Amino acid sequence: MTVSRGWSFNVLKEHVLREPVANFSPCRDIDLFLDRGSQRSGMGVPDAVHLLHHRFGLDSTLHGDSTRHKADYEILEKLHRDYVNWLRKAQCMQDAGGAPGSRFTSTNANGMWQYSPFLCGTGPEEALAESYRCSFTVMERILEPGLLVHLHNMLTKEGYLTRPIELYEKLEQLFAKLFSVPLVPGIR
């Protein structure tokens, strides 16, 4: 936090004071992650949630079951609300009601975020970890991606594909234990 504001400590020079980096915002990565201000069309969590919701709807229509992805969308929507509601905001300030503002800024109760690159780095990191867990929860219910990797594996091993498709090959390598079990007894 102090380095981003121009104050650091050097063993040889002791305290080093410099002008802070111009236009530095610790929250820039969070703003990119959430695409606050909608500056990049098709990017950020809100657009990804909207696109996936649209795809869930198309798949539900294709299968004639309007509730086909209801649970998956609810998980996704909860995750989205958590990102929007808690990145750059302190939950204790929300719960406290009339609590005094941050000592870092008199006008903003969540002022610590504006001064802490560490906090603004760990927030998106935790959000990515949570989205990773959420995506695997959804993937466990949608069989097609796993089936495609198994199909790719079989086609490669039998020689029907002369060159493996890199995406499926990487997924197979990353999740080797998951894909080493045959789906149907007797099929390699």
Score class of each variant (00 low, 15 high):
P26K: 06
G42V: 06
D65Y: 00
K177L: 11
N110C: 07
M43Q: 13
S116A: 04
G97M: 04
L183S: 09
G186F: 00
A96H: 03
G186P: 00
L12S: 14
Q91S: 14
P117A: 07
E144A: 13
K70S: 06
L76P: 00
A96K: 05
F118W: 13
T107C: 13
T61H: 09
L143Q: 12
L155E: 01
L174Q: 10
S106V: 11
E77M: 02
A48P: 00
A176K: 13
R36D: 03
D82G: 07
H152L: 05
N153K: 12
L167R: 10
H152E: 03
R40I: 07
T137I: 10
R68T: 06
A71M: 09
T67L: 13
H69L: 03
G123W: 01
S66W: 02
V11A: 14
N10H: 08
V84G: 01
A90D: 15
H150Y: 08
G57N: 00
E144D: 14
M154V: 15
A99E: 06
A96N: 05
K13E: 15
H54N: 02
Y83F: 14
T156F: 10
N110E: 02
L167K: 09
K78W: 07
K78P: 00
G111L: 02
M1S: 13
L183D: 03
A96P: 01
E144H: 10
M154I: 15
V11W: 09
L87S: 00
N10T: 05
Q39D: 07
M154F: 09
S131I: 05
G101M: 09
C92Q: 12
K89C: 08
S8G: 11
P46V: 00
L147V: 13
D72Q: 10
P182Q: 04
G159T: 03
L178D: 10
L51E: 05
A96Y: 04
L52I: 09
L34C: 06
L62Y: 13
G6C: 07
V3E: 14
F118A: 12
P164W: 04
V84E: 02
T122I: 15
W86L: 14
P46N: 02
P117S: 02
D65T: 08
L147Y: 08
G97W: 06
S106L: 10
W86R: 15
A176M: 08
V84R: 01
K170A: 11
K170Q: 13
C27N: 10
V3F: 11
S135L: 12
L87Y: 00
I165W: 08
P182T: 05
Q114A: 15
R88N: 12
F56W: 03
Q91P: 10
V21E: 15
Y73D: 04
V84I: 10
R36E: 05
S131Q: 03
P124M: 06
L151T: 12
G159W: 00
T122F: 11
A71R: 07
I30W: 04
D29K: 12
F104M: 09
R103W: 13
L151C: 10
Q39M: 10
Q173C: 09
T61D: 14
H63Y: 14
S60D: 06
T105I: 07
R141Y: 04
M154D: 08
V16E: 06
N108M: 01
F179C: 05
I142C: 04
A129P: 04
V149K: 02
V184H: 03
L148V: 08
H150S: 05
S131A: 14
P164K: 04
G121R: 08
T156D: 12
D95M: 10
R81V: 05
I165Y: 07
N110V: 07
